[in-house]
Design a protein around this nucleic acid. Structure first.
Length: 293
DNA sequence: CGGCCGCCCTGGTGGC
DNA sequence: TGCCACCAGGGCGGCC
């Protein structure tokens, strides 16, 4: 579920509940998520003021007054919900009692405001880790991440440079978090469609022989920007159970042009093609062979 | 080392 | 209705 737009949506949902607020109590309801919790996980959180909530690629980073940073990753199925002091999980919602607990509620933060923040993750591919801020540059989970796709340094020249010596497909290159950090299967498919580039095309063809970016690289960067910005504006995509922290659904899935549309008509007005699906590096690729070359 | 595969885990869906 | 195979948004370790 969570690619960059979904994680950014979660960050914006959690920010008012966390920033400037103290974690009074941190509770882990099992010994591990993807990895075992650190033995001092709870101790390093309790009593700490969250001074800021940021994002790097698909990671959330909560800065703590102690100088530690709480790293959080949603994996495939992780979500947060914010329960206010009255017990409502969403405005006007009085059906959810505090501490009621649902299946797969694994972590609960009780904030000094009375708000509870609950992390739920059925598949447990998500994880949390507390790291000293000065050790963040050496943190294995973050080291090696490529540029933020919406950041200033990510442009056609940079993308072409990091792809020019690759032997792999454009699809695989864009899913490689070292090339650009935060895209997943959905937004890679959508960006390639919008840039009219085939997922099978060699990544190296983003660079000219001189090493300069091809016009394709310019188109691709613009398409990545567009699709991510539009998805963030829509509150992300809700496939299956992804929700915002309020429980509301994002609605960008209605704007998909190829993802999950196998057999449907291509949405390019002048194209009579059909959306196709095939497996690439073990994952589904959706594309229109009529539009994408 | 680059690239690819298998796997971690649970749940929903679609076919029979 | 029940059962089962298959699929899913991520990313790591290990293998070639």
């Amino acid at each position: 579920m969570p690619e960059l737009p979904e994680v950014e949506t979660v960050r914006r949902g959690l920010q008012p509940a966390m920033e400037g607020v103290t974690i009074v109590r941190a509770e882990t309801r099992r010994k591990d998520l993807r990895f075992p919790f650190q033995t001092d996980f709870v101790a390093r959180l309790e009593g700490q003021v969250v001074t800021g909530l940021g994002r790097r690629a698909k990671y959330l980073l909560a800065d703590l007054a102690s100088g530690d940073v709480l790293l959080m990753h949603l994996g495939m199925s992780g979500s947060f919900r914010v329960i206010d002091a009255a017990g409502a999980a969403a405005p006007g919602d009085f059906h959810h009692r505090r501490n009621e607990g649902r299946a797969h509620d694994h972590v609960c933060f009780t904030m000094s405001s009375g708000v509870e923040i609950v992390f739920n993750d059925p598949r447990r591919f998500g994880y949390m880790k507390v790291v000293a801020r000065e050790a963040l540059d050496d943190e294995p989970l973050l080291r090696g991440l490529g540029p933020e796709p919406l950041g200033n340094e990510f442009d056609a020249a940079m993308l072409a440079r990091s792809c020019r010596d690759k032997k792999t497909s454009l699809k695989a290159a864009l899913l490689d978090q070292r090339v650009v950090a935060g895209l997943g299967n959905i937004y890679v498919c959508e960006a390639l469609f919008r840039a009219r580039l085939s997922p099978r095309r060699l990544a190296a063809t983003l660079a000219l022989k001189t090493g300069a970016p091809s016009e394709r690289a310019e188109r691709l960067v613009a398409a990545i920007h567009d699709v991510l910005n539009q998805a963030i504006k829509a509150g992300g995509s809700s496939l299956r159970d992804h929700r915002q922290t309020t429980g509301e659904l994002g609605y960008f899935q209605h704007s998909f042009r190829v993802y999950d549309r196998e057999g449907d008509k291509c949405r390019t007005p002048t194209c009579k093609g059909t959306v196709r699906r095939f497996t690439q590096n073990g994952r589904s690729t959706f594309w229109c062979p009529g539009c994408q070359t």
